[in-house]
Amino acid sequence: MSLSEDGGYGGDGHRGPETGQTRTRLPDSGGDPYGSARRSRTGMSSRNLVTIVGVIVLLLAAIAFANRGGSGNNESPTDSPKDSGAGAAQPTAPTGTKPVGGKSGGIATGFAKTEQGAQSAAANYAVALNSDGMYKNESRHAIVDTVYAPSVAASRKNGLDKAYSDAAALGRAGLKPDGTVPKGMTFVSRATPVGTKIESFKGDTAKVSVWYSALFGLAGARSQNPVTESWYTSTFDLLWTGGDWKVSNSTQKDGPAPIGRDQPAASAEDMTKAVQGYGGFTYAR
């Protein structure tokens, strides 16, 4: 495309009258040549306003419906929860049912003979069996007597005594051969359950899996075994005996472990303060 001699674009056939440029005139609308366009914009704004108001009304209705549904789930907090089929995940929310009736040596006891009670027992037992109390003879025996069924407690004590008295294993954990903690260090062994799952539930037996993270190591300025995080799944065979759930057997496997977030590790001092300042939880559903 080239410029014509009079400054217009194209040849003579594209020129407007006299000036060589094409012009388009709108019909006369009473002195306001843009009146029809303004009315069009006004009409579009009205439609937009109606649409926005409609969306807001729908959102308010949805919120009201959700709130009504949530309150309906808690209308009878004293009713006993209905256990679902085996393998279905259950939320760790309050159910209104008292989960435990007592405790022994700091470990919750007296669980209900329900799926909920079995899951609560398994979660609490995972915490106890992964605590630092397992590294001392007296507290370990007390934990075993509380957690395991009487029929297997004695044999479990013998096996665990051998495992926790192994000098090489204790050394790898950063402890002294007698299981004591080096001066100036804080020993950390703590489990935090993330969720539980009923594998099977029938009569006086139940199988429950507990997924949890575990902190383990020595917190201290000169620690050669800093506190690290691991993930495990322990599966407990539970037996209803003496009016409570007790462990008859258990297995453990690694993971599933999430991808670690890019966060700076705490200093030895901050880790020590956290461990000493924050107590572990007693888990109950």
Rank of each mutant, 00 (worst) to 15 (best):
P193R: 00
Q224D: 13
K197Y: 06
N225C: 01
A128W: 08
A173G: 04
L170M: 12
G243D: 01
D132Q: 13
A118N: 05
I143K: 04
N137R: 12
G184Q: 07
K197G: 10
I107T: 12
K103T: 11
G243C: 09
S230K: 05
T235N: 12
G179S: 15
Y212N: 01
G179I: 14
K162N: 11
A167P: 10
A167H: 14
T228C: 00
G105F: 07
A122N: 10
A122P: 05
R172C: 06
G220T: 09
N124E: 13
K103V: 02
S104A: 09
K183I: 01
Y212E: 03
K103G: 10
K162E: 15
T235Y: 13
K157D: 14
D178L: 12
A128N: 01
T196N: 02
I143L: 03
P193G: 00
S200N: 12
L218C: 00
N130W: 03
V144A: 12
T233M: 06
E138C: 04
A122S: 06
S189P: 03
A154Y: 09
A149M: 11
Y164L: 13
E199I: 15
L218N: 05
G106L: 05
I143M: 03
L160K: 12
T196K: 00
G243P: 07
R190L: 08
R156E: 15
A168L: 10
G106R: 09
E115R: 13
W245V: 06
W211N: 03
S200R: 14
T186G: 04
